[in-house]
Design a protein around this nucleic acid. Structure first.
Lengths: 131, 131, 131, 131
DNA sequence: GTGGTCTAGACCACG
DNA sequence: GTGGTCTAGACCACC
């Protein structure tokens, strides 16, 4: 069962963080069609957040067709979603961990690391758009 | 001169994105003590944003002592700022570009890549907290 | 400017009635791309309803891409919507008024009239589906 | 025997749709005093709905005195019900079908047709209220 | 001024 | 017990 986590310092509204985490989990293959999401109450229990906020996130995903909220039963990843084929990201993740180690050794803190990744992704985007 | 960029889909308030980008730039050594920031008019010209929003971001950075707004002259990175020593992140960035290429080759789109980086950073955090 | 009206006896949630009325107005050409919708406060003033309820309706339409909510400015019909070409429904409406007159003369009250229209629309649907 | 149908997109609670359909059928003369309604099992078999939901609808109609649930026998339209005299609505329906044909020929889809009927009924209401 | 988000607590509909 | 809706009132971000 997926576990949500909130970053209060990011400035991203909590309900949006949940939306994004569900989409990311599907995108990474962590969540697949038919999987159940935690009930609103379970999320409330683990996150110290208002039930309405979770409901808002689930509702938005429901309207987008990403999940299927069934009253009385729970909330499930929609059967129609095209998830990842859940290939093994182990090697990629291992390389990433290595790189993070070198980045920290070079004196970068988390803020700087995120900045580097963000700007590199953006640069790549522009290159691909042009190319 | 630093260039700002807004990601409207992220949910982060525009003024906060500017604040974060200034801090990140300093953290990466892209901005150093004494460097000038673009004027509010320049930012407005390049971002389609309300001047008040830029002013709010600059005000917040000013209050935090990160930048120094000098009436009639412009806005500058505060002299007291402890930035990076602007070492060369070239190698790190090159490795990151390589890794991104492999990630894409493995079928990950931007959403999935960000998800992988996020979750890895979080996992690391937890490990460091524990260790 | 479109005016909303609520039918509390229908059982349809108020926020959904607003959503449906906006869609219908676009479908009939009463609302067209770029037209402004009443502000949340205006709706609240005319409908005795909670602002959040109106906001929920507008938000749902926004997510669906039907309208464009601009903070600080108001809410507008999205430029991308394919509305009716606003042809003249006058004749059709006149005929409908005639028919309604005959229906009432035959002793049908509103409930019965709606029942007749509903069942006829459904029957037609089935016929078209089969044919 | 009356057949129920659910419109999940309407936002009207399923149990209410059943209640309304029974009332409409009586109002149109389709159901008359003494007529039997389908058993809960029959409804469940044809509608993919929870028995409790059907029971709730029947209970509400029973409490209103519209129907009469006889233990072990079934559910019947109450003898006291003042239904329509079941006049022949054939001509009215035929005219309506004609009008619907012209409406579709004019480019109106179902959404627009319902919008036109709704708004015309509302306008009439106002006229009658004033006059 | 505009819309956007969150909280709190109530009630409803469905299984 | 599940999710869905509404109210009330607060604060925030943007124009």
């Amino acid at each position: 069962m997926i576990e949500f986590h909130l970053d209060t310092a990011s400035g991203v509204p909590p309900y949006l963080q949940i939306v994004q985490q569900v989409r990311q989990a599907i995108s990474l293959g962590v969540l697949r069609a038919g999987d159940q999401l935690p009930t609103i109450k379970e999320v409330v229990g683990s996150l110290a957040i208002n039930p309405n906020t979770v409901a808002k996130a689930y509702r938005e995903l429901d309207l987008a067709g990403v999940i299927d909220a069934r009253r009385g039963q729970g909330t499930f990843v929609a059967d129609t979603v095209e998830g990842s084929s859940r290939r093994d990201y182990g090697p990629l993740r291992a390389e990433l961990v290595d790189w993070l180690g070198r980045a920290r050794a070079a004196g970068l803190d988390d803020l700087a690391i995120r900045a580097l990744v963000d700007s590199t992704l953006r640069t790549e985007l522009r290159l691909r758009a042009v190319g």
